[in-house]
Amino acid sequence: MAPELADALTPADLLTADGGEVTQELIDAAPQFWSVVLGYADVLCDIATGKPVDEDDVDWDTAEDDEAVAAQGLRHTNTVEWREARTAEYFCHDHDGAGLSLTPVMEAARSSAPEAGEAAESTLTDEERAAEYARRSREREAAEKQERRRVRELNKQAEAATTVRREFLRTSLLARKTPPGAAAAYVAATIAQDPHLLTEHKAGEVLAELMGLPSVYPGKDIAAMAAKGTEARAQVLTLALVLAAQESRMVKDAWRSKPRGADRYLSFLMGQGYTLAAVEEIITGQLTFDEVAID
């Protein structure tokens, strides 16, 4: 008897009796309940061994730089390559017989009314249904791969933007003898709304970088500079404390996490003549994740 089309489910749609994932071992132990569709796909592999490598285990910032050192726990891009490999996708046509149950998501999908496209799909043969599942799976994997690539590229753009932004802070704002326009209002509003900003653990490190100070704990240095300088210069130093603390939150994926105060911070910089990079415009809401060019 041919398998019911409605029961052709992927391992991700199913759970074991104790709520665990359906593994390859379980499939191999009961092959009579499964169909397999063979195909080809690009797989990231270790160059030396040929074994598959998870994309998240690679430091993609090392690309095209053989001298770069990969981040801790990650590997250099020159140790991996994309290879075409044979793939197998499995579809269960009798999950009850296999002793499996539907995931809550699939249970909800099965209990809902069928959509128009599903009615047409019910006329497919078993082989066509399996091929359709495989096609959708490939499309999903391609979309996920593209999204991971976009994240990596936007992170690179964000790091480049940080270099430009900090140079602007050093040369255009914090080297001044008098505070720029709107600085007092920005400082007052920021501290009032975010009183713990100045105590964040990397604020001092960034302040030292921006002000060219030798210590990552520059409080005494700033106090001494304020004591020796003019009243106007002291206001610039106060601005430096706030900008450095906010800048310390601008990690490479700030475009995604959107740290507290980051939109107001970038808007303030724009008011001082700074031109936002496209990746920074995600934070201010001028662009979306998908609108930033990555090629």
Results as ranks from 00 to 15, higher is better:
268 F>N: 01
255 W>H: 10
85 A>P: 00
8 A>R: 13
110 R>M: 07
109 A>F: 01
131 A>G: 12
295 D>I: 09
214 P>D: 00
232 A>P: 07
83 R>S: 06
176 R>G: 09
133 Y>H: 13
183 A>C: 09
260 R>I: 10
167 E>F: 11
28 D>W: 02
274 Y>V: 10
214 P>I: 07
275 T>L: 11
115 E>K: 13
163 T>G: 05
260 R>F: 05
230 T>A: 04
97 G>S: 08
176 R>V: 00
65 D>K: 06
221 D>V: 00
10 T>K: 10
81 E>N: 03
4 E>F: 11
211 M>A: 00
113 A>S: 12
42 D>E: 12
35 S>Q: 03
223 A>Y: 05
119 A>M: 14
223 A>E: 11
238 T>W: 03
236 V>I: 01
103 T>M: 09
206 V>N: 02
289 F>N: 07
220 K>S: 06
253 D>Q: 07
160 A>D: 05
151 V>Q: 15
6 A>W: 04
275 T>Q: 14
106 M>Q: 07
226 A>N: 06
146 Q>A: 15
56 D>G: 02
122 S>A: 15
126 D>S: 15
69 V>P: 06
235 Q>D: 00
175 A>S: 13
258 K>F: 06
237 L>E: 00
157 Q>K: 09
48 A>Q: 03
169 L>Q: 05
208 A>T: 02
171 T>Q: 10
277 A>D: 14
18 D>V: 04
159 E>C: 13
153 E>R: 10
86 R>L: 04
74 L>C: 06
87 T>F: 01
102 L>A: 06
202 K>V: 00
172 S>Q: 15
154 L>K: 02
196 H>C: 05
265 Y>F: 13
146 Q>W: 13
210 L>R: 01
229 G>Y: 06
82 W>D: 10
238 T>R: 04
248 S>C: 09
90 Y>Q: 06
38 L>W: 00
212 G>I: 03
152 R>W: 13
193 Q>A: 13
253 D>R: 11
217 Y>G: 03
77 T>I: 04
70 A>P: 09
130 A>M: 14
156 K>C: 07
67 E>M: 14
288 T>E: 09
172 S>F: 12
64 E>S: 08
285 G>R: 08
289 F>W: 09
89 E>S: 10
137 S>F: 14
126 D>V: 15
35 S>K: 05
262 A>P: 02
68 A>F: 11
167 E>T: 15
58 V>G: 01
183 A>M: 07
98 A>H: 09
125 T>G: 15
16 T>R: 09
263 D>C: 04
274 Y>L: 10
167 E>S: 15
70 A>E: 08
145 K>L: 15
295 D>C: 10
4 E>Q: 14
265 Y>M: 01
292 V>W: 07
159 E>D: 14
